[in-house]
Amino acid sequence: MTDLAKKVVVVTGGGRGIGRAVSLLAAKRGYRVCLSYVSDAEAAATAVAAIEAEGGQAVAVRCDVAEEAEIVALFEAADRLGTVTALVNNAGVVDLPAPVSEMSAARLHRMMATNVVGSFLCAREAVRRMSTKVGGRGGAIVNVSSIAARLGGAGQFVDYAASKGAIDSFTIGLAREVADAGIRVNAVAPGIIDTEIHASGGTPDKAAVMGPGVPMKRAGTADEVAAPVLWLLSDEAAYTTGAILDVSGGR
């Protein structure tokens, strides 16, 4: 197999939490990994080092997915690794708990620019490379949604929940749009997962506090989200597209 035939996955927000777990598992499954980070260069470098220690190949690229030019540069870096056949749209932000009546326009623009527009633009770049209609090899996209899209986030994170509702609609629509171009598009919808994102939302103990209230009586782990993501990317899911897979412990 030539270098250009090697399969490459782009994982946004791949340095920490769910993105890191996806990056490491993807490398174990034979992908070359192009992971992005926006601020924590040390965490991203650690993820790359962990992949390389196991004989894999990875590169970390600073990319704010709210910036179109940075997304284009991210995919250009991925092209240098080989042929992009997979994208995991994982990068996202939360904010401090607040009711809608106290949300600023700046907060809402940031939320939607990162969680929604960024996912659209990353998918655009992936489709341009993967589509069999333009000479691509096909591929798969997995969007990271949230069960917040269904629960609504009342009183705290309605903006985050709404952004993930948009991701669900985006997943279904794009899946139907590119199904005949050799591209599958699916999503996972995690519930309470024990990652660093809760701290950035002002609730660092959220997993510990809310975990016991989940039907399975615990929070999930990043690895427990990564596994279904890699299944959706794999040939085992060859006839699955437009699906939104709950990974929520039964919430």
Rank of each mutant, 00 (worst) to 15 (best):
Lys217Gln: 15
Gln156Asn: 07
Glu236His: 10
Tyr31Arg: 01
Asp79Arg: 11
Phe75Tyr: 09
Phe120Lys: 00
Asp64Thr: 11
Asp3Thr: 14
Ala219Lys: 12
Pro99Tyr: 04
Gly135Ser: 06
Arg137His: 13
Gly173Glu: 06
Val48Leu: 06
Gly250Ile: 07
Asp180Gly: 07
Asp159Tyr: 04
Val59Lys: 02
Asn115Phe: 04
Ile147Leu: 13
Ala199Phe: 01
Gly220Ser: 02
Ala148Leu: 13
Leu96Met: 14
Val22Leu: 02
Val48Tyr: 06
Ala227Ser: 13
Cys63Pro: 08
Asp246Glu: 14
Gln156Phe: 12
Ile192Ser: 03
Pro204Ile: 12
Gly201Thr: 08
Asp168Ile: 13
Lys7Arg: 15
Ala162Val: 15
Ala60Cys: 08
Ala26Tyr: 00
Ile244Glu: 02
Ala5Asn: 13
Ala207Asn: 04
Asp180Met: 13
Ala226Lys: 05
Gly118Lys: 03
Ala140Gln: 01
Arg62Asp: 07
Pro212Glu: 05
Arg29Gln: 12
Leu108Gly: 05
Leu4Gly: 06
Gly173Ile: 12
Ser101Thr: 15
Ile197Ser: 02
Glu67Gly: 09
His198Leu: 12
Phe157Asp: 03
Ala69Val: 14
Lys217Arg: 15
Gly202Val: 05
Ala189Leu: 13
Ser104Leu: 09
Val94Cys: 13
Ala50His: 06
Thr46Ala: 12
Ala154Glu: 07
Gly14Asp: 05
Glu125Gln: 11
Arg218Phe: 07
Gly139His: 00
Thr83Glu: 05
Leu230Glu: 01
Val117Pro: 00
Val33Arg: 01
Leu87His: 12
Val214Cys: 04
Ser36Asn: 03
Asp95Glu: 14
Leu24Asn: 01
Arg80Thr: 15
Ala44Lys: 03
Ile244Phe: 02
Met111Gln: 11
Tyr160Thr: 07
Ala73Gly: 11
Val142Gly: 00
Ile167Cys: 00
Val158Asp: 02
Leu25Asn: 00
Gly182Leu: 05
Leu74Trp: 07
Asp159Ala: 10
Arg129Asp: 00
Asp235Trp: 03
Ser200Phe: 14
Ala73Tyr: 10
Leu174His: 01
Glu125Lys: 03
Cys34Met: 02
Gly242Glu: 00
Leu35Phe: 10
Thr203Lys: 10
Ala66Gly: 15
Met112Ile: 15
Ala161Tyr: 10
Glu224Asp: 02
Gly139Pro: 00
Arg184His: 01
Arg128Gly: 12
Val178Ala: 01
Thr46Asn: 08
Glu236Trp: 05
Met216Gln: 15
Arg150Phe: 14
Gly136Phe: 05
Val100Pro: 08
Pro99Met: 06
Trp231Phe: 14
His198Pro: 07
Glu102Pro: 01
Pro215Arg: 10
Val48Gln: 01
Ile193Phe: 02
Val94Asp: 13
Val38Lys: 09
Ile193Lys: 04
Val100Gln: 08
Gly165Tyr: 05
Lys133Ile: 06
Gly92Lys: 09
Ser145Gly: 09
Ala66Val: 11
Gly165Val: 06
Met210Cys: 08
Asp168Leu: 09
Thr221Asn: 03
Asp180Lys: 14
Ala105Leu: 15
Ala50Ser: 09
Leu174Asn: 01
Arg107His: 15
Ile183Gly: 00
